[in-house]
Amino acid sequence: MEKVNFQINAKQYSTAKEEKPLLWYLRDDAKLKGTKFGCGKGLCGACTVKVNGEAVRSCQTMLSELSGAKVETIESLGDNHPLFVAWKKYNVPQCGYCQPGQIMSASALLDKNKRPTSEQVSEHMSGNICRCGTYQRISNAIQNAGVNS
């Protein structure tokens, strides 16, 4: 079978070029379990990672599309990343399951705009569901992280 080569968190990976979602490659093959499965249909954002700097739903991103791509997952962020610091300051997580996806979405937003308005945060983050309802804290944390990064 044809191979596809790409990077995950700056490490080179090579695997069969198949119609398998990146999500399950990350979780079951690369053993990077910070990226979560929530809906499998690109509706909830729990599986958000960055591909070439853009936030994508890894459950809808096939391995076959990843030739030469740079994938970044929650594991790529250092423990003292401004988003983690802000997440701690606002004590954001409840159950925590959606949070890695929220943070990767937030990271993609802050890459482009360090001072997003609350409307810009809302719009950008509305693809990421948090059933526990941590949205208010997420908003505050993103704006705080933007200021401090």
Partner: peptide, 28 residues
Amino acid sequence: KIPLIDGHDLAAGKAVFGMDVEVENMVY
């Protein structure tokens, strides 16, 4: 107001949920 003890592990995807369990030789 005390921050969650597990706060960072949850945010960083390090906490082990049921979905993250792996056992040697398991099937799905």
